[in-house]
Design a binder for these strands. Sequence first.
DNA 1: CAACGATACGGAGACTGTCTCCGTTTTGTC
DNA 2: GACAAAACGGAGACAGTCTCCGTATCGTTG
Lengths: 191, 191
Amino acid sequence: MGTATAATTRPMRADAQRNYDHIVEVASDAFAEHGVLTSLDDIACRAGVGPGTLYRHFPTRDSLIATALGDSVDRLDTLAAGLKASEAPGEALHEWMLALAMHLRTYDNLPESIAEAFRRDDSPLRNSCFPLTDTTSVLVARAKAAGELRDDVDPRDVFALVSSVAWAAQRRGGTDADLKRMLSLATTGIR
Amino acid sequence: MGTATAATTRPMRADAQRNYDHIVEVASDAFAEHGVLTSLDDIACRAGVGPGTLYRHFPTRDSLIATALGDSVDRLDTLAAGLKASEAPGEALHEWMLALAMHLRTYDNLPESIAEAFRRDDSPLRNSCFPLTDTTSVLVARAKAAGELRDDVDPRDVFALVSSVAWAAQRRGGTDADLKRMLSLATTGIR
DNA sequence: CAACGATACGGAGACTGTCTCCGTTTTGTC
DNA sequence: GACAAAACGGAGACAGTCTCCGTATCGTTG
């Protein structure tokens, strides 16, 4: 991803593509610095475009977040491919849960936005998470099959649990140590 | 609590007390119906007072939430007294964690507000939670002493974990069953 | 390369919610 | 009944979201 284009339809006009790319770039920085709740008009301003232009390209905050997260999701997908082939499904699941939790820390308040997106249909942010929930399901199933995870665990609960740990850790200090400790606390019970 | 008064200083003037009580009453309803993020001006309007009056009594949203939660916290305190004397500390801790999680579901978005309050000093909402964190500490210590809980568990992490489970469960459907299932998933590992 | 239609821009401004300031009203006391 | 202190309330400043539409830019066609 990185420089996304609506390749399905007619290609974007040159100026539109330029603005689109610049907005995403600025948004990534702004989200990283101030969290996903930062002012969108401010992002537009910093990107040197009017609010109208931003909202035309990204009708909702979610759509902008989803696009800004593109690279991080791609990286997770690469990791997922390896983990799905792992010969130690239990460990693979653990590694995945940690990676997922780290991903959810990409921006401040991201877990809230994603959780919110899951309550709406057709949210672009929700759609962008489907690869992640799918991978979670696969890894949970493999861990179960290997007898390394209880049979009664719902993969959706696992995703929710990881989200909630990421959420909690961010408010408990936000360091890697906080995240790992909280995740360990919450998952030791899984086996 | 219920009808709180600044009893430490001079008693409130009659009209002020009347407005104060009415605001809290209306706020409880509004929070219950629309969550803690509902419009404060709207609460003022429904309570038949001007915005100025509301903000004079409750300078921050947190202070209003804290007051509105008074009754629920009182009920938890009563429960806590019994649990602290329980002869089954492990079970007592579990029961407490469930009660705490239910409390955090009193209003929509309450876990977020409380977590946020914990990042600020002198937030009234944070202060109103101290009895709860204290009880958590006591019950965690007792469970440890009885050998029913790992020694390396930080009570603050326990509180954070319960908050995060309440948060996650609310976004996973919000039913009692969702909450209990998620809590069980997250705590089975505690022992 | 001129010119035209389609595409995209951008900023003024409507709208919503937060929060404050200060002239007016209510209260309690002497 | 009158006076000072306490409290009221609403107009309005401010910030953020999002839209509408006149204007500018682009790409294509002759």
